[in-house]
Design a protein around this nucleic acid. Structure first.
Length: 270
DNA sequence: AGGTTATGCCAAT
DNA sequence: TTGGCCTAACCTC
């Protein structure tokens, strides 16, 4: 159940374990047999994360696109040399796809999307995604794409931050925490914000997502960036409804915004 | 054992 | 706005 930082970590791990070598693919569950056959055995050129999606680019120019959705999970591990080949290792539970070579394997369970795309189809997907704050090529000009979309929209900033066509990689946790850190009411329409406020949100997203990639956790309190905080300590407002705000002491609020739980401090975020 | 929950997203209404 | 997808972890009983 990842936000963007997790997917970037998966891409890094995939590159480390598999890039530049022949990658094999099987479909134990049977739901990805056709796709697996299309690319299995080809060299993997690279893995790339864009927002919450992972793109595995194979030598034939075909790409496997994976979106974990809310349930999906990766289980990766390195293999002892000369041990049982990954194709014969037991499959536990529902495994949509197993990626493997002689030295490593990765099991994929429960993804919303796992499909093989042509280059043109990849371009279509990328075209409708908003910029990813931690994608190196979405820094300068791309951040302006995010800012202008927000400033032009009547939707609430709470919904805009979750909209992957506006900015990709932010989910429910980072949404709540970014708005708290910015002191912004989640219900403010995008077009009521200033350019400076939206630019600050972008830069804070870059900062928080980078901490997430580095640590593997969505830590949003600066003083804990280099620590190993428990779940209960990590954040300002996420899942803290009814508890006192860490800054002002007022009760943290909860509401449903477009089917998702929204957490915020009515006092600090006005 | 059974129920609830989740960091997501889409199609149908 | 609602229901459905699909899986595992974490509850409660």
């Amino acid at each position: 159940m990842p936000e963007g930082h997790t997917v970037h970590r998966s891409a890094n791990e995939f590159n480390r374990l598999f890039a530049g070598r022949q990658l094999n693919l099987i479909s134990p569950q049977g739901r990805f047999s056709t796709g697996a056959a299309l690319v299995s055995g080809q060299p993997l050129e690279d893995a790339k994360a864009v927002g919450k999606q992972l793109f595995l680019h194979f030598a034939s120019d075909l790409t496997v696109r994976i979106h974990l959705g809310i349930y999906g999970k990766w289980q990766m591990r390195e293999l002892e040399p000369d041990s049982t080949p990954a194709s014969s290792l037991p499959v536990v539970g529902e495994v949509r796809a197993r990626f493997f070579n002689q030295t490593a394997m990765a099991d994929l369970r429960g993804p919303t999307v796992c499909e093989v795309l042509s280059p043109a189809e990849v371009d279509l997907v990328l075209k409708r995604l908003g910029p990813d704050p931690i994608n190196p090529d979405s820094r300068g000009v791309e951040s302006e794409r995010f800012i202008s979309k927000v400033l032009a929209s009547k939707s609430t900033i709470g919904q805009l931050l979750m909209n992957q066509n506006v900015v990709s990689g932010i989910g429910n946790v980072y949404r709540a925490e970014l708005l708290f850190r910015a002191g912004l009411d989640p219900y403010l329409p995008g077009n009521n914000l200033t350019h400076e406020q939206v630019a600050a949100l972008w830069h804070d997203a870059v900062k928080l997502l980078k901490v997430g990639v580095k640590t593997g956790f969505m830590i949003t309190r600066d003083e804990l960036f280099t620590k190993r905080p428990t779940k209960a300590e990590r954040n300002f407002v996420y899942k803290r409804e009814g508890l006192p705000c860490r800054v002002c002491g007022h009760e943290i609020s909860i509401a449903i915004m477009a089917t998702r739980k929204l957490y915020w401090c009515r006092f600090c975020q006005r």
